[in-house]
Design a protein around this nucleic acid. Structure first.
Lengths: 279, 279
DNA sequence: CCGCCGACTTGAACGCGTTCAGCGGTGTCG
DNA sequence: CGACACCGCTGAACGCGTTCAAGTCGGCGG
């Protein structure tokens, strides 16, 4: 559960028709969007389940304030005291709603993931070439992430910590991860490549493409070129190759190695990144 | 963080980042050996270049004490005050020799890397099969790392931080990285596969195999099975595949894709992990 | 109306990593 | 010999993330 996002039913065929006008709205604010809470009990960013309306408001206020300050000053230079002061509450109150400072980052990540999915879907609309769709999806991520590049390191450190429940690797029900994997599922199903693949591979691919994104993210975090141009070029170069490899995998000659790779991925990679065993 | 050098002595200051000698000698042999300083100027774990014999001793004492406490109590529970007290010095003194607490980790990493190289070489001796040699090298790493698994997360967080000069990704002259890449170079050259490969690929491979190790490390950090048995199995399964792919790459059919991959790696992967452009 | 419960809020206090003004000692130069 | 520079070293102090005993307040049963 937890995702409950804008109703992307898996049954919706090619879900590209829906919502998000190509206007490319990046609602940098519009507090309602990501604050919009899963209505029932959910672990959420941090702590207590909201009981009151006021509680929910306070929580949102703290999160919004934190996100604003993070963007203005960067993560390290934003103190919990500053967040509390700016939000007009006490420090302790922030800790009532968020387990730690790092849990506030999740707000960023969730918002970005959501915006990315919407933006990528809009941009992919109509395109049928798989490599092209993949490139759009990845480039779209870079565009959505551009404003957060400065403090991305902090987020990445968090993701690399296996003891942190914030890591998209160790937390299989991480809502942002689910959203992202769904997007890549659409990258595939919307392409002309999808019907040509055997179903077993088609099942693996969304997660693998998400892994591709993770590699891009890794690259992007370390990228210091202006506008992360190098990462963009990396995407332009790596996506056709990915498409080619997938394409080739259909041929007889590669059967044994494809099978081995598939087994390796299915048995050792996917379970580790939060996919339960094969169905 | 803390990048602002307090600026004591604007002229002398801390002369970090000054020319590191190309001296490629691999120091260290026994446990006490990596403490032994590079005789000339080198950036070292943290701060000032040693001038005195006594200085060097104090530095070693602090490092050894820290490493012992880290292993006894874990990283987070070991305070700088405890390290200083246990070593019989003041807190400020520890910071005189080490830029921050994290810089103390490098002692761990350096030691482990060296032990790994020695152990792997010993175990590989006589073996000619490439896949076998690779598996030995990777498994040896797991064996050497076993005692550090508990606080490996901390090290991994550090490695994932692009702003940290401790990251083996962002610091190309990281001595531990050099040592490791050299080992993988021997993995290849000692095998019967080496003479069959074209020289261009043979040049890339050591770094790529090091990347393989990094993936194993990533897997290992998240591995919670006893004795990290799952990672060991992952190594057993992935090494033959790597060998097979390398082997296949020699055949005509794969020319185009191998060429693309080679270019991608050479232009985008290796430079980012600290290899300067192609020679 | 009282009393109590529990969600919500507070801010002083704690422990931590890190900094910094400064101390002694050992040259070195004039 | 005095002045100075500089290395090694000190420990109080700073700012931070985080905790917690102690509130406030609204609602509900009695």
């Amino acid at each position: 559960m937890a995702t409950t996002n804008g109703g992307n039913g898996p049954t919706s065929g090619d879900g590209l028709a829906n919502g998000s006008t190509p206007g490319n709205r990046l609602p940098a604010s519009d507090p309602a969007a990501e604050v919009r809470t899963a209505p029932t009990t959910e672990v959420r960013g941090g702590r207590a389940q909201p009981k009151t309306d006021k509680s929910e408001q306070t929580r949102a206020l703290i999160l919004e304030t934190a996100m604003r300050l993070f963007q203005e000053r960067g993560y390290d230079k934003t103190t919990m005291r500053a967040i509390a002061a700016e939000a007009g509450v006490s420090v302790g109150n922030a800790y009532y709603y968020f387990e730690s400072k790092e849990f506030l980052i999740q707000g960023f990540y969730d918002r970005m993931t959501y915006e990315h999915a919407a933006d990528a879907r809009a941009r992919m609309a109509g395109r049928k070439d798989f490599a092209e769709r993949l490139e759009i999806a990845l480039t779209s991520w870079i565009d959505c992430a551009v404003e957060y590049h400065e403090f991305a390191a902090q987020f990445f450190r968090t993701a690399a910590d296996p003891t942190s429940s914030l890591s998209p690797f160790s937390n299989e029900s991480h809502p942002a991860r689910t959203t992202a994997v769904e997007l890549f599922s659409e990258v595939l199903t919307g392409s002309e490549l999808a019907p040509k693949l055997d179903s077993e591979l088609a099942e693996l691919l969304p997660d693998l493409l998400w892994l591709h994104l993770m590699i891009v993210v890794l690259y992007w975090v370390f990228d210091r070129t202006p506008d992360t141009e190098r990462t963009r070029e990396f995407v332009r170069r790596s996506t056709p190759m990915a498409a080619r490899i997938i394409n080739l995998s259909r041929y007889r000659v590669f059967r044994p190695i494809v099978r081995d790779a598939k087994d390796l991925i299915q048995d050792f990679i996917l379970p580790t990144i939060g996919r339960t065993a094969r169905p």
